[in-house]
């Protein structure tokens, strides 16, 4: 009985991982790295653009502007946090891993190395809806999502197939 369960688990995991792999390979894209100049405007309670799609290898030159009050820009996965005073072209930036050493700048340069979905959030309380103020940077190829889609589909087929097998076996025994 126990062996049966282990076998089932192994089958499911194998199928799911196969699905994930298939997803990653199928959606794999390789675009030529380019330079992107991006101006991100922060306004209560969203960023514009609220979604940017870039590719691994790109170099991003990001200018940050706040339109009404002081906002922040905490880009997860890339160790960047900025403090953007409104109606000024300069802002302060720091590396969260490095503590609170703020530096004055007017541009952030990011060399995109990690694929996936990375959110940028406001890090300076900017009003009531502040905790929900965020944008997203999609870096292609987004292996987690592509693999995830494959894994989910593989998982469903794996489960249904197991049920089918079990039914068949039950009938054979009778």
């Amino acid at each position: 009985m126990k062996n049966m369960n282990i076998k089932k688990v192994v089958i499911i995991i194998t199928i799911t991982l196969t699905g994930a792999l298939a997803g990653i390979l199928y959606f794999n894209s390789s675009a030529k790295p380019i330079r992107r100049d991006i101006v991100i405007k922060a306004r209560q309670y969203s960023y514009e653009p609220n979604r940017m799609e870039v590719n691994v290898g790109d170099t991003l030159y990001i200018k940050l502007l706040a339109l009404d009050v002081m906002h922040g820009f905490y880009l997860e996965g890339y160790d960047i946090d900025a403090e953007i005073p409104a109606n000024l072209s300069n802002f302060k930036v720091r590396k969260p891993s490095d503590g609170f050493n703020w530096k004055d700048t007017n541009e952030i340069v990011i060399i995109v190395t990690r694929g996936g979905k990375f959110r940028y959030r406001c890090s300076h309380t900017c009003g009531t809806m502040h905790p929900f103020m965020q944008g997203e940077m999609i870096v292609h190829p987004n292996h987690l999502f592509n693999g995830g889609v494959g894994a989910v589909i593989g998982f469903v087929f794996g489960l249904l197939w197991l049920i089918y097998k079990k039914n068949k076996k039950g009938h054979d025994n009778e």
Binding site: A66, D68, V69, M70, P85, A86, N87, L88
Partner: peptide
């Protein structure tokens, strides 16, 4: 001295 909105 830091812009804080419409009424700054």
């Amino acid at each position: 001295t830091v812009f804080c909105g419409h009424c700054h």
